[in-house]
Measured scan of single mutants.
Amino acid sequence: GKMTGIVKWFNADKGFGFITPDDGSKDVFVHFSAIQNDGYKSSDEGQKVSFTIESGAKGPAAGNVTSL
């Protein structure tokens, strides 16, 4: 299901970062391709987002990331 969290950091040059879930669980990796914004796929530190957890090649990753 959908979770909410805060972007801990995001490196636009490398195209990835981490989200800290609101439920206190482990930080989740986020790749720019998962960000659902139109246009520039980046996110700012401290941005509140909703997301799903997908199982990626390197473990859990955020999917369907949407700014709230």
Rank of each mutant, 00 (worst) to 15 (best):
G1M: 12
G1N: 13
G1Q: 13
G1I: 13
G1L: 13
G1P: 13
G1K: 13
K2Y: 13
K2H: 11
K2E: 08
K2C: 13
K2P: 10
K2F: 12
K2I: 13
K2D: 05
K2V: 13
K2S: 09
M3V: 09
M3D: 03
M3L: 11
M3K: 11
M3H: 11
T4S: 07
T4C: 12
T4Y: 08
T4Q: 06
T4V: 06
G5T: 01
G5F: 06
G5L: 06
G5A: 01
G5K: 00
G5Y: 02
I6Q: 07
I6R: 08
I6A: 05
I6E: 05
I6M: 07
I6V: 13
I6W: 10
V7N: 03
V7A: 00
V7Y: 05
V7H: 01
V7G: 01
K8C: 09
K8Y: 05
K8D: 04
K8H: 06
K8R: 09
K8S: 07
K8G: 04
K8Q: 04
K8L: 07
W9P: 03
W9M: 02
W9S: 01
W9E: 04
F10L: 03
F10R: 00
F10W: 14
F10D: 03
F10E: 04
F10S: 00
F10P: 04
F10H: 02
F10T: 02
F10I: 04
N11Y: 04
N11D: 12
N11M: 02
N11S: 10
N11K: 05
N11W: 09
N11R: 06
A12C: 14
A12Q: 12
A12P: 12
A12G: 08
A12V: 12
D13P: 02
D13M: 12
D13F: 12
D13E: 14
K14V: 08
K14S: 07
K14C: 11
K14M: 12
K14R: 10
K14N: 05
G15E: 04
G15T: 05
G15L: 04
G15P: 01
G15C: 08
F16Y: 14
F16N: 00
F16C: 07
F16T: 01
F16R: 00
F16P: 01
F16E: 02
F16W: 14
F16G: 00
F16Q: 00
F16A: 01
G17K: 00
G17T: 02
G17N: 03
G17C: 08
G17W: 03
G17Y: 08
F18H: 02
F18K: 01
F18R: 00
F18I: 05
F18S: 01
F18V: 06
F18C: 11
F18N: 00
F18W: 10
I19M: 00
I19E: 00
I19H: 02
I19N: 01
I19R: 00
I19V: 03
T20G: 03
T20V: 11
T20S: 10
T20K: 13
P21R: 02
P21C: 07
P21L: 04
P21W: 04
D22G: 02
D22V: 05
D22S: 08
D22Q: 03
D22K: 01
D22F: 07
D22N: 06
D22R: 00
D22I: 05
D23K: 05
D23S: 06
D23M: 04
D23L: 03
D23A: 03
G24H: 06
G24Q: 04
G24K: 05
G24E: 02
G24C: 08
G24D: 03
S25H: 06
S25A: 06
S25C: 09
S25L: 05
S25V: 03
S25E: 04
S25W: 03
K26N: 10
K26I: 08
K26E: 11
K26F: 08
D27N: 06
D27K: 02
D27T: 04
D27E: 08
D27I: 05
D27W: 06
V28T: 02
V28C: 07
V28L: 10
V28A: 01
V28Y: 03
F29M: 03
F29I: 03
F29K: 01
F29A: 01
F29Q: 01
F29V: 01
F29R: 00
F29T: 00
F29N: 01
V30M: 13
V30Q: 00
V30D: 01
V30L: 14
V30E: 01
V30I: 09
H31N: 03
H31C: 10
H31W: 08
H31P: 06
H31R: 03
H31I: 06
F32V: 13
F32R: 10
F32P: 02
F32S: 10
F32W: 15
F32Y: 12
F32G: 07
F32K: 13
S33V: 04
S33Q: 06
S33T: 12
S33N: 08
S33A: 06
S33R: 05
A34G: 06
A34M: 07
A34N: 09
A34L: 01
A34W: 04
A34S: 10
I35S: 02
I35L: 13
I35V: 07
I35A: 02
I35N: 03
I35K: 01
I35D: 03
Q36R: 08
Q36L: 13
Q36T: 11
Q36Y: 10
N37V: 11
N37D: 12
N37I: 14
D38S: 14
D38E: 12
D38K: 12
D38R: 08
G39E: 09
G39H: 10
G39S: 11
G39T: 10
G39I: 12
G39A: 10
G39V: 11
Y40F: 14
Y40R: 08
Y40E: 08
Y40I: 12
K41G: 12
K41A: 10
K41W: 15
K41N: 11
K41P: 10
K41C: 14
S42W: 15
S42R: 10
S42F: 15
S42L: 14
S42K: 10
S42C: 14
S42N: 11
S43V: 15
S43W: 15
S43T: 15
S43P: 15
S43N: 09
S43G: 11
S43C: 15
S43K: 10
S43E: 07
D44P: 15
D44T: 15
D44G: 14
D44V: 15
D44I: 15
D44Y: 15
D44R: 15
D44N: 15
E45T: 15
E45V: 15
E45F: 14
E45Y: 14
G46H: 09
G46W: 10
G46Y: 10
G46F: 11
G46A: 07
G46I: 09
G46C: 13
Q47L: 12
Q47I: 11
Q47F: 09
Q47R: 11
Q47H: 12
Q47A: 12
Q47E: 10
K48L: 10
K48H: 13
K48M: 09
K48A: 11
K48Y: 10
K48N: 06
K48I: 08
V49E: 01
V49T: 01
V49I: 05
S50L: 08
S50R: 06
S50N: 05
S50I: 09
S50K: 05
S50H: 07
S50F: 06
F51Q: 01
F51T: 02
F51R: 00
F51W: 00
F51A: 02
T52M: 06
T52R: 04
T52L: 06
T52P: 01
T52W: 07
I53Q: 04
I53R: 04
I53T: 04
I53V: 10
I53C: 08
I53W: 07
I53K: 05
I53D: 02
I53F: 06
I53E: 01
E54C: 13
E54D: 08
E54A: 07
E54W: 10
E54T: 13
E54P: 00
E54S: 10
S55N: 14
S55V: 14
S55G: 08
S55L: 14
S55I: 15
S55Y: 15
S55E: 14
G56W: 10
G56Q: 11
G56M: 09
G56F: 08
A57Y: 12
A57C: 14
A57Q: 10
A57F: 12
A57M: 12
A57R: 12
A57S: 12
A57V: 13
A57N: 10
A57G: 10
K58I: 08
K58R: 13
K58W: 15
K58S: 09
K58E: 06
G59T: 02
G59E: 02
G59F: 07
G59Y: 07
G59C: 09
G59D: 03
G59L: 04
P60S: 08
P60E: 07
P60Q: 09
P60T: 09
P60N: 08
P60H: 08
P60V: 11
A61D: 02
A61W: 15
A61R: 15
A61N: 09
A61K: 14
A61E: 15
A62P: 03
A62G: 02
A62E: 02
A62D: 01
G63E: 08
G63V: 15
G63Q: 14
G63W: 12
G63I: 14
G63C: 14
G63L: 12
G63D: 06
G63Y: 14
N64D: 07
N64G: 06
N64A: 07
N64H: 09
N64P: 02
N64F: 09
V65A: 03
V65S: 02
V65Y: 00
V65T: 00
V65P: 01
V65N: 01
T66Y: 07
T66E: 10
T66V: 13
T66P: 02
T66K: 09
T66S: 09
S67A: 14
S67C: 13
S67E: 08
S67K: 14
S67Y: 15
L68T: 07
L68F: 08
L68C: 11
L68M: 10
L68S: 07
L68N: 07
L68Y: 08
L68H: 08
L68K: 03
